[in-house]
Design a protein around this nucleic acid. Structure first.
Lengths: 203, 203, 203, 203
DNA sequence: TCTTAAGCGAGACGGTACGTCATGTCTTAAA
DNA sequence: TTTAAGACATGACGTACCGTCTCGCTTAAGA
């Protein structure tokens, strides 16, 4: 039924060595210094073995990404019942991790990889727990009435993630205060529609 | 007293040729295919002339960016008095231009450049008119009471721009409907907090 | 019918396939383009099967050589009783065959193989019929008094063969006239010792 | 009058380093172990510098050959007036040098190079002094009547050289006795046709 | 007006990495 | 147990760019 193929099978050891080496080099040197030859050298693997199984260095990174090798923590959004506080907590954690290196180099590297390779782009937002975790928390908020029923929660997640990226690309470093302002604006019940009448309603 | 210097001064023609060639190649092939040697060849210029005046290919791109060579239109946000409609109009225009090429290649190229080079990152959001134009429109909205006085308009701009980037990196193509949902959420007067009773419940 | 059992049954077929494929590729592409992998592919044989039986590509060629697969004709030297005419006839035949390809490529290929691999060198001169046939003819000449009894016939054979090789390596193409001059010098009864006294002795 | 060409000129140092390294490696390891990368490494030169000026490793060897770097001595044929003795002397010298290494490896290497590359073939026989020196000595012999006026001296030179090659390819090692037999046959005044009585017997 | 030093095009240089190919050893599944 | 198929580490191939460094010219300011 299935097409038969004889011969040796893919070496699990080689695959593991490549992904491990890639992760190591990616963290140490960033995406633009990452080379196929460097990975092969570090992994003790032939170049051809990499080319046999991955189409580009981006594809290798994408595999690392989807296996959770690049971000070693789960960016879980807590659920205390108070949306804004939960999101702010999550934001602080995320920023701490992402900027632990040298000023957001990690974000820029992953963005560069995503810009170059479709496969990386696919696993991008999900890998940060944005989709899996942040969106889930927002869904809860919708269910509990903290957000309107028609709130585009996925797009809101993208917007927050996008703001993090933009901030990182601009090399701003304000300890995340500006991002905190953003989420406060987004999730403060008084909403953003201020103006003349809003303040009165707000008091 | 003054440092003596004889000889010719920087050639305006060479500078123009380099920037023009860079713009051309950037649009034709994208950032990752862009090379110093390619620019020099295309511009009919010596490599050293480029290295004399720019520190990297990123710096050349940054110059193109700040001179408005990469995006040939001004992304002006109209002001009809109705904020949401204006933003949606601007969004449609921006997406039309950015995706005219092959599926957001243009955005990804500029993002890659920004991820690699600080100078590009600096001029990034501004170059798209996000800062100059979108933020200005939001400031007007604040003044006119369509947004609360403490709305972090710059961060909102970044969030929208960031959402565009994230969408582009993920290679989604839904004609911008998801982004339109986002701005509708952000700028609809009814706000996003779920219905009439939610605020009361909070107090 | 023979598909029935395991063991060395297939061996003979594999051996034949390898030698046939090698011969084909050698003639089509020359020695330097000849590869083990290419032979295996062409023969429909595993690489290991080749390595099991032969130590190198030179060894495969050597087998082809000793089995007469590389030169499909026998370079028989005729025996009409007239030595010079016989040799010249043989020479013409040999050159016709050897240069039929593209300007002596065949000779150069076999020489390259011989230079690289001892086994090929061993079978070299013999394979062209130099030893078996030319030397035999010279031996007859010695017996019949057309050559002196102590003529080093094997060395003479080597010299003629060597001259062919040198000519081929130098890429000269004079339709063999220069070689014909050589054999005329070697086998003309008047000998090569010209000068004043020799002709007189000759008359 | 002459076409002007700006820009830097070929580096004599790089050229020298390449040829010196090639000569060294050729003697140490033979032609088949000789690689462009090896030469570049040994010479402390970029690979591209080699490819810029030579079309193949054969071309580099050819340059070494024509500059007399591969054979460090001049194979001068003496002229004592006695042809055979002179040639035998030359032959002894040549064989001593050529087989000093490991059993004719040097000859086989140069032959392999010549078989692969036309340029090497061109400079081949000349480089050994066959053309320049041996042929010159034979020409003298013709003038002095030791050889007939119409003796094809160039072909005789090729034949001797070719016999050396064939001997080397066959890995024979008899201290050159067989070759000495050949030249004795060629240059002994009594000629090679079997004595005084043989012709008569033949008629 | 003449000197002179910088800018310019061109491109050679020592390097690094690319993606491909072949080597010789090894492992697997089928016959 | 041999075979074909082919994965593996190794290493050379020839190409493209990197950033630096001459070249020989053109050119403009200062003497």
């Amino acid at each position: 039924m299935n097409q038969h193929r004889s011969g040796p099978v893919r070496s699990a050891a080689a695959r593991e060595a490549v992904l491990a080496a890639t992760t190591r080099l990616f963290h140490e040197q960033g995406y633009d210094k990452l080379t196929i030859e460097g990975i092969a050298r570090e992994a003790g693997v032939g170049k051809q073995t990499i080319y046999r199984w991955w189409s580009s260095r981006g594809a290798v990174i994408a595999d690392c990404l989807t296996e959770g090798r690049l971000f070693l923590v789960e960016f879980e959004v807590p659920n205390t019942g108070e949306l804004l506080r939960d999101i702010e907590h999550w934001l602080t954690t995320v920023l701490t991790i992402l900027e632990a290196r040298n000023g957001g180099e990690l974000v820029r590297s992953i963005v560069a990889a995503a810009a170059e390779d479709p496969a990386v782009g696919d696993g991008l937002s999900e890998s940060l727990g944005v989709e899996r975790s942040l969106t889930a928390r927002l869904a809860v908020a919708v269910r509990e009435g903290q957000l309107p029923a028609d709130a585009p929660i996925e797009q809101i997640g993208d917007a927050i993630f996008g703001a993090i990226i933009v901030r990182s690309l601009s090399r701003k470093s304000d300890s995340g205060e500006s991002l905190r302002q953003l989420v406060r604006f987004l999730f403060t019940p008084t909403g953003r529609q201020g103006g003349a009448e809003a303040p009165t309603r707000r008091t």
